[in-house]
Design a protein around this nucleic acid. Sequence first.
DNA 1: CTGAAAGCGCTAACAT
DNA 2: ATGTTAGCGCTTTCAG
Lengths: 323, 323
Amino acid sequence: MSPKTVSRVLNDEPFVKDAVRDRVKAVAKELNYQPNITAKGLITRRSFMLGLTYERPSPSYVVELQRGVLERLADERWRMIILPFRDVCAQPEAFFTFLRSAALDGVVLAPPGSDEIAVLDRLDAAGIPYGRIAPQLEPGRGACSLLDDTAAAREAAEHLLTLGHRRLAVILGDPTHRASAARSAGYAQAFAAHGIAIETVAVEPGDFTLASGEAAMQRILARPGPRPTAVLAQNDDMAVGAITVARDAGLATPDDLSVVGFDDSDISRLIMPKLTTVRQPVFDMAVSATEGLLKLLAGEPVPAPVLHRHELLIRQSTAAPRG
Amino acid sequence: MSPKTVSRVLNDEPFVKDAVRDRVKAVAKELNYQPNITAKGLITRRSFMLGLTYERPSPSYVVELQRGVLERLADERWRMIILPFRDVCAQPEAFFTFLRSAALDGVVLAPPGSDEIAVLDRLDAAGIPYGRIAPQLEPGRGACSLLDDTAAAREAAEHLLTLGHRRLAVILGDPTHRASAARSAGYAQAFAAHGIAIETVAVEPGDFTLASGEAAMQRILARPGPRPTAVLAQNDDMAVGAITVARDAGLATPDDLSVVGFDDSDISRLIMPKLTTVRQPVFDMAVSATEGLLKLLAGEPVPAPVLHRHELLIRQSTAAPRG
DNA sequence: CTGAAAGCGCTAACAT
DNA sequence: ATGTTAGCGCTTTCAG
């Protein structure tokens, strides 16, 4: 019984007699044998590690992302290592170096890294395959999980317009995330369809954090002229900040002010009133991006991008304007 | 210039002339050379991977835990892999097998795994060092980050008693987490100090989830006799569930019902009213458990356990009872 | 179908 | 202070 025969059995290779195969498997089980993945990696030139990178998303987004990747990796020999990196967009070179030094076989890129073309170029050059979560650019590159942010944002805006709102405000997300512009475009489409001039909309910058949502809402309330009756926030955290600031200013949601978020994060269901928001299937997107990445690692061609369905969840934070 | 000399330079070993050292470093930099960690691992018998395991805590707890471990691992050659495992307590053997198959050099155990003595025994036998987050049992084993759950819970209960509450309810956490019993003991100490008979307290089981907090609150309200004026929930998610159910029953917090949580999770600051709760420094605990684990991996003796300070954060969900 | 030989990239132990 | 030898545990290649 040579080492090679054992190796063949353990790797499910053909050309081993069933009797031998059974015997090896029995002994391996009895000995609780675990092949040395490091030695295997040395010769196969694989570390059997995938990376998952993101910037600094909200806890529930991170958790769903990780759950999705791990779900697909369960019962595989691949492991996942977590690689948060700040300011991906500010220093793509450093980001790439960081990825390369981790000796990964592949990487799942969450926003905004999934849209850093310079990083994709470097990964291609280094022969490191990648999955991309919700990219806006070049959706044919890598294994992509797509979401139609523009359509989703348009539906959110339509919802408010259909309720009768005409004086609107928008709180933008981090501009380094391409999804922010895509969502803005969706709002604009809805405004145009209802004959609302974009100049009449109070647009304030933000960066996806609760604090930025609070600050933006304060600026909205400080603006001269009649105040808006509804706010479109580009994520839930900022929407919550807006509701809090509005309440402190004596405005109840949804009676005095309707608010729509984006993400369907945990917080959207826990605050009162429950937030009207757009659900992104982050878990499913992570599963399918990982699935695609595994295909690339198996030598298959780039899989077709998977478009995931968003869903407008109408809850308690939106109502028709008063009067 | 032999490979060994290069190896010496790259590993900062002594006995290399400065001139040679400089030249090697320069060339390595120019070539963007990355040593093959797999080959190094094969001979040093290290995978340079640490695991972080937990059961299914709340997103903000997970994120803080991961941030802490990664913080300490930054600029180290160690990587972190995430190993969530359900039902640690129900199947410690399977849990250990899961850990072992990951080929880890060490592992950070979050509750309830940090209190699974059977698993610690197996890890010891396998020679895998570990850090433990907030264990209640055998605090001398492994690199421990401790928290005095009993004292923290006692302070939370004292706070309510000092406000004048006498009719109290408790919502318990998952009984497989030892912290749950420790917190209950703390409540009991405060009750005893104020002459409150434990039989007069409405104690309901829960499992740390929002839904279990809601269900527990429903049972509390359904009990015969005068309803409690305050609730001690063993974590924030359950506290939020209690507040929601109370509100639906026409009871405002804190006017009609005071509620105290535990954890200082994100949600505690986002809901209205903001939750009075106990802060656990999860991030710091993760940093110091990882720190201790690295010491063990360096061959140092078991470091002294580090006791972390909790803090009662009095916010808006507690007030004196009416009348 | 099975096995022997060679070697992945690195470092420990032992020269020099 | 530097180089040589051997080998980590596995798989590829090629010979039976």
